[in-house]
Amino acid sequence: MISYEDRSPSIDPDAWVAADATVCGDVVIGAGSRIMHGARVVAEAGGAIRIGRNCIVLENAVIRATGRHDCAIGDYCLVGPNSHVVGAQIGDEVFIATGAAVFHGAQVGRGAEVRINGTVHLRTLLEPGATVPIGWIAVGNPAHILSPEQHEAIWSLQKPLDFPGSVYGVDRNHPDAMKTITTRLSNALRVHQTENS
């Protein structure tokens, strides 16, 4: 358990967090939820994470929030091993399988499934009960669910969602975009230099 800028986690007494998991910042974890070994639940830079009741966050999953994108996971959700959820809103009873990724500003409706290595992209709205098949990509609002071989179709939907602008506030076409992004992140993450290892 790590505080971040005077914000500390709040864990229900009926929840459990493995000793080798990380829970950092403004994080609330509901009753009956389990954060398993090696999982990382990290709210940075003013962001907040809310995890509901009876959620299971399996080994080495990462759940993150940023100052621009809070993250919420409803009740009765399963977040699989090695999956990644950042700045998204996840409804109740959602299954996020091993290796899946759900990005900033995405909304995943109740009872949806994101299967192994599936992706729900930035600012995408995945309807309740929808399924992203193994390795496929959901992109857009409403979501188009496409196979990975359809890169041009995916990019035509993804490009206007503006990942660098939406996530980092930096114009994709700026000549020093990566320098600006990484310098800002380095400065924001400097707060961790004071943590004990």
Results as ranks from 00 to 15, higher is better:
residue 72 A to I: 03
residue 127 E to L: 11
residue 83 S to D: 04
residue 129 G to Q: 03
residue 74 G to E: 11
residue 158 Q to W: 14
residue 116 I to T: 14
residue 71 C to T: 15
residue 81 P to I: 06
residue 104 H to S: 06
residue 161 L to D: 12
residue 134 I to Q: 11
residue 61 A to V: 13
residue 166 S to R: 11
residue 77 C to M: 02
residue 108 V to H: 03
residue 155 W to I: 04
residue 143 A to T: 13
residue 137 I to Q: 09
residue 81 P to T: 10
residue 75 D to H: 07
residue 163 F to S: 08
residue 120 V to Y: 09
residue 101 A to S: 14
residue 158 Q to Y: 15
residue 61 A to I: 13
residue 171 D to A: 14
residue 110 R to V: 10
residue 62 V to W: 01
residue 101 A to V: 14
residue 113 E to T: 09
residue 123 R to C: 04
residue 99 G to P: 09
residue 114 V to L: 03
residue 72 A to G: 07
residue 116 I to R: 03
residue 106 A to M: 11
residue 165 G to Y: 02
residue 157 L to Y: 01
residue 137 I to K: 06
residue 154 I to T: 09
residue 176 D to A: 14
residue 109 G to Y: 11
residue 67 G to P: 12
residue 83 S to C: 05
residue 159 K to V: 14
residue 174 H to F: 03
residue 103 F to I: 01
residue 136 W to I: 06
residue 162 D to H: 04
residue 78 L to K: 13
residue 112 A to C: 00
residue 61 A to E: 12
residue 97 A to I: 12
residue 163 F to A: 12
residue 95 F to I: 11
residue 132 V to H: 00
residue 146 L to M: 14
residue 170 V to Q: 01
residue 65 A to N: 02
residue 142 P to Q: 06
residue 133 P to V: 05
residue 64 R to G: 05
residue 125 L to G: 02
residue 98 T to I: 12
residue 169 G to T: 15
residue 175 P to T: 03
residue 96 I to E: 07
residue 108 V to E: 02
residue 82 N to F: 02
residue 127 E to T: 11
residue 86 V to F: 06
residue 175 P to V: 05
residue 103 F to K: 00
residue 161 L to S: 14
residue 139 V to S: 09
residue 174 H to E: 15
residue 172 R to K: 12
residue 83 S to H: 00
residue 138 A to Q: 05
residue 93 E to K: 10
residue 120 V to E: 05
residue 95 F to C: 01
residue 163 F to N: 10
residue 136 W to D: 15
residue 93 E to V: 01
residue 139 V to N: 06
residue 170 V to Y: 05
residue 63 I to L: 15
residue 139 V to C: 08
residue 85 V to F: 02
residue 122 L to S: 09
residue 140 G to W: 03
residue 65 A to V: 07
residue 67 G to F: 08
residue 155 W to H: 09
residue 79 V to Y: 00
residue 94 V to P: 04
residue 96 I to G: 07
residue 73 I to K: 10
residue 164 P to G: 13
residue 177 A to G: 02
residue 88 A to C: 03
residue 143 A to C: 10
residue 147 S to P: 15
residue 138 A to G: 03
residue 93 E to F: 10
